[in-house]
Amino acid sequence: MVCAGAALAAATAAPASAATGPPARARVAVIDCTGNAQVRPGQFMLACGDGNNVLTSLRWSQWQPQAAVAEGTDMVNDCKPYCAAGRFHGYPVHVRLQHPQLRSGHPGQWHFTQATLTYHGSRPADTAAVVTSRLWG
């Protein structure tokens, strides 16, 4: 299963509630494995615990308060015969981050709560063509 990172944003406009979504001028950023905010990262680790899944070569065509969209490569370790001896394989992927919410414990900061990966052609074994994951934040 693909795990994904969350997003964080500092609101730059009038306050909004989580029910209404971020203000139009909110700056939403994805949270990396160490809890740091990133906007339009070139790579993003999905498997923070073991590093066996990372999005690379990300080219963002959209980064708005409601959604962020990119094309890139999903690098996945096949873990054969076990993860330390496995090989990484790259799969072309469309990435969409969405469902922004206020980040708990961080007043005025927003984060995406969902990531959807859509594979173009080949994909990791036992993985659907479209995978949607809840993001932590």
Rank of each mutant, 00 (worst) to 15 (best):
N52M: 09
K80M: 00
R25I: 00
C79R: 12
P22T: 08
D32H: 08
K80H: 09
A11T: 13
D78F: 12
A70W: 00
L97T: 03
H89F: 06
P81Q: 04
M75K: 11
C33H: 02
S17W: 08
Q66V: 08
Q43S: 14
A84P: 01
T56E: 13
V93Y: 05
W60N: 10
G72T: 07
R27G: 08
V54Y: 06
F44I: 09
L102Y: 00
A37W: 01
A4T: 04
R96F: 01
R87F: 15
S17M: 05
A9G: 12
A47L: 10
Q62H: 05
F88I: 07
Q98L: 04
G49L: 06
A67M: 07
V95R: 02
R87P: 10
H94F: 08
A19W: 01
C83L: 04
V28N: 02
M45N: 07
Q101P: 06
L97F: 10
D78P: 14
I31Y: 13
A7G: 15
D74E: 10
A84R: 10
C33T: 13
I31M: 13
N53E: 12
L102V: 02
V54I: 14
H89S: 11
D74M: 02
A11L: 01
G49Q: 10
H99T: 14
A6Q: 14
A70Y: 00
V93T: 09
A24D: 12
P100Q: 04
A7K: 04
N53D: 12
A24I: 08
Q62P: 01
A6S: 11
A85P: 01
A47C: 05
A10I: 04
T34L: 11
G49M: 04
R59W: 01
Q66E: 11
A10Y: 09
R59S: 14
A10C: 00
G21R: 11
C48Y: 07
A26P: 00
V28L: 11
T34V: 14
S61E: 13
F44H: 06
A19F: 05
A26H: 04
A18G: 14
P81G: 13
N53H: 06
A24L: 12
P100E: 08
R27L: 12
G72Q: 06
H89W: 00
T73I: 15
L97E: 03
V30W: 02
V28T: 10
L8N: 04
F44M: 15
Q101A: 15
